[in-house]
């Protein structure tokens, strides 16, 4: 096997968390003001392995195993940033933001503005969202919540390539960035991804706020992000067999929200479906739909639909979870209905 092929093979065998750890390590190497705080991130390397090896490499002063004291260490991140450091604060699951939201939305997100731009807030809140079957308090996405509160960039990547590039961009950003991984994706290896499992070796960044067309199509535009991109691609493939051509767009971030790319596509297909694993109401799906309508005019689209978690806590039972969390089947059903329409 050639060296190049061998390397590509290693990448495909690599768990997504290892790619994330690599991105953080590369940034910590180039910038010694970066440090990481969080539960189980040091000795254990993170509950999913996204900080594997970092403590051995950079020491326990730069990769800090914290007690379960989120308010304490989230605020500590704010202070570190004000003191000239660049903290990455890990909130293990995004659901736990409830105990420390104060420091996130009243401090980190508002201080740059409240200071009239004098105080920078270069920090990353890294966290895992998404449903893998652990019921109401351990399955949420919540990116809509962060997006609703002004002052934070909100990123939720869907493939290894983007996780690496967007993590680097988040760590180099002078603004607070909420970086939301998806637990189901964190359990995967490179080869399990339908899209962009390839990852360059060195450090690179991707711009925050640029959507990507991950599958071209002509009948329906489907915009989504995070693990739903994988579900959308599976559904699009199924629909292709039924003669329906679906264009799939990965938004990659909720703030900034790249409505231009979505509008350009929906303007061609005439049909827009926004799929969101976060709650339906007052969230991403309505916001994006309206921003597209703003761009195309009320008559610019034949259909606009949303498929999101109906406004209900995520149930424990698998039978109920499947009924409310948008998976490949629910997405395919909705696409089918839309294709039958006008």
């Amino acid at each position: 096997m050639s060296a190049v092929a061998e390397r590509a093979n290693d990448r495909l065998a690599m768990p997504l968390p290892a790619t994330i750890a690599e991105a953080i390590a590369l940034e910590m190497e180039r910038d010694d003001t970066i440090l990481c705080l969080g539960e189980d991130i040091g000795r254990a390397g993170g509950v999913f392995g996204t900080t594997t090896g970092l403590q051995e490499r950079f020491g326990s002063a730069r990769v800090v195993d914290t007690p379960i004291a989120e308010m304490g260490f989230a605020g500590m991140g704010v202070g570190l940033a004000q003191a000239g450091m660049r903290p990455l604060v890990e909130i293990m699951f995004v659901d736990f933001i409830g105990v420390c939201l104060e420091q996130v939305y009243n401090a980190a997100a508002k201080i740059p503005y409240m200071s009239g731009g004098r105080q920078r807030m270069p920090m990353v809140f890294k966290t895992a969202g998404g449903c893998i079957g652990s019921a109401a308090q351990h399955s949420q996405c919540l990116w809509g919540l962060f997006a609703h509160l002004p002052g934070m960039k909100v990123v939720a990547p869907c493939n290894p390539h983007d996780h690496k590039g967007l993590m680097a961009a988040a760590l180099r950003s002078d603004d607070p960035v909420v970086f939301i991984e998806h637990k189901a994706l964190l359990l995967r290896k490179g080869r399990d991804f339908r899209h962009h499992p390839d990852v360059p070796d060195g450090a690179y960044t991707l711009p925050l706020g640029e959507a990507a067309v991950v599958r071209e199509g002509s009948d329906v535009t489907l915009a989504t992000l995070s693990a739903s991109v994988e579900h959308a691609l599976a559904a699009a493939e199924e629909l292709a067999g039924e003669g329906v051509s679906v264009e799939v767009i990965d938004l990659r971030s909720v703030v900034p929200l790249d409505a231009d790319t979505v509008a350009a596509s929906a303007g061609r297909t005439g049909r827009l479906l926004v799929v969101d694993e976060d709650y339906l109401s007052f969230g991403l799906s309505a916001e994006l739909s309206l921003r597209v309508i703003d761009r195309l005019g009320l008559s610019g689209l034949r259909q606009v639909e949303r498929l999101a978690l109906p406004d209900v806590p995520i149930p424990a039972a698998l039978s109920l979870e499947k009924a409310v969390v948008p998976g490949p089947e629910l997405i395919a059903d909705r696409l089918r209905q839309m294709a039958k329409g006008v």
């Binding site: 652990s134 019921a135 109401a136 424990a316 039972a317 109920l320």
Partner: peptide, 13 residues
């Protein structure tokens, strides 16, 4: 469905 919380809560709740 016959569980303490009708299967909505699960083991942690």
């Amino acid at each position: 469905e016959a569980g303490l919380c009708r299967g909505r809560g699960g083991h942690m709740h």
